[in-house]
Nucleic acid binder design. Structure first.
Lengths: 193, 193
DNA sequence: GTTCATTCTTAACAAATATCAACGAAATCC
DNA sequence: GGATTTCGTTGATATTTGTTAAGAATGAAC
């Protein structure tokens, strides 16, 4: 049931003991989502960090009626509106299931209790936060330092599988342009090669 | 000598014991910078997290010969090219002293040793990482959801002191526009009020 | 297999912002 | 306190990207 998530934890904190793992396991619960369902709705507090056991979800802002995607979570990834989760304030972003999704949730109170009781989970929490910081920072760097065209070719190289799974207009906003403009970028790229 | 930084730590981890504090204190060292000096140079690995004991520093990318400021650290703030510090890879950003700066450094190896030895520092590291994530996420949200004008007025309200201390062209890139454009934004604002 | 909705592409036009260049003001340095 | 550099403003123009609208392609539903 929780094999995949256990692998995830032991990769970050290899010395996790059996009792520690069991304490965590007791806190985990499974939620099922259908395509189009929301794991998190903007405006509501994000109550969980969710491990994606299967399926695909996206994280996005809804601004002036337009979506701006900021990330995608696949099987084996963690996802959360982490700022909301940490601050207990309403989420600015939505998390939506792009396919059927099975998520393994860990709630805020349980997480704080694990932190208090087991130093190993402090370490896990630190490493997760560091990881999320690095991801966000890399995305920022790319948005600042690269052109839309470079960000798109980058994506082809590093996230080829997402190009298959995600509609192009979602990738467009992730890359930081309109769908129309991404279409132009693609045409230009295919002409020049 | 280390009063300010001790306050900083005990605010994040109130239960810090005397031996724990002393273990940290042994790792701290002070560096002095003159205006224009670099605390961190892009291309080199960032070796420290630095507490600003006095003065003002800025964090910025240098892209195509142009600066893009991403943050400012004042007295009482921590600063670091944190992605480089965590990953031990060359920094993408510079940290530059905008005034004389006195910084209290904590090195990577010492930090890892503190993490290993004292759970309290795991907790500190977690909270710092969470904080940095939230800061970065808020900046992202502002860049996505607000106009340059809104970001500027926001800054007036929340960071009034920085407007005094930092040249306008650095604020411009922080806000995400050219200095010329910020100048026009300001003119428009003063006309309309 | 036809219909309907969704997605992608294309083109013409519009808007926001950048670039370039010049000038004036302010601060800094001998 | 004059000279020099740095900084901020302004205007003309250029570029990038967004907007709107239409149609083509794709895929799902019946």
């Amino acid at each position: 049931m929780f094999d995949a998530i256990k692998t995830y934890y032991t990769r970050l904190v290899p010395q996790l003991s059996q009792p520690e793992w069991e304490a965590l396991e007791k806190c985990l619960s499974i939620r099922q989502f259908r395509k189009g369902d929301f794991l998190v709705k903007a405006g509501q507090v994000c109550k969980y960090v969710s491990f994606i056991n299967s399926g695909l979800a996206r994280l996005y802002y809804s601004i002036d009626g337009k979506d701006v995607s900021t990330g995608f979570a696949q099987q084996g990834d963690y996802t959360s509106e982490y700022e909301s989760f940490l601050t207990r304030k309403p989420a600015a972003q939505n998390i939506e299931a792009l396919t059927e999704v099975e998520a393994i949730d860990l709630g805020y109170d349980d997480m704080q209790r694990l932190y208090k009781t087991y130093p190993a989970y402090q370490e896990f929490g630190r490493k997760i936060s560091e990881f999320l910081f690095i991801m966000l920072n890399q995305r920022n760097t790319a948005l600042l330092a690269l052109t839309p065209e470079e960000r798109y070719t980058n994506m082809i190289e590093t996230n080829a599988n997402l190009l298959q799974l995600v509609p192009q207009y979602m990738l467009a906003s992730y890359i930081g342009v309109t769908p129309e403009h991404l279409s132009r970028v693609r045409r230009k790229l295919s002409a020049g090669s």
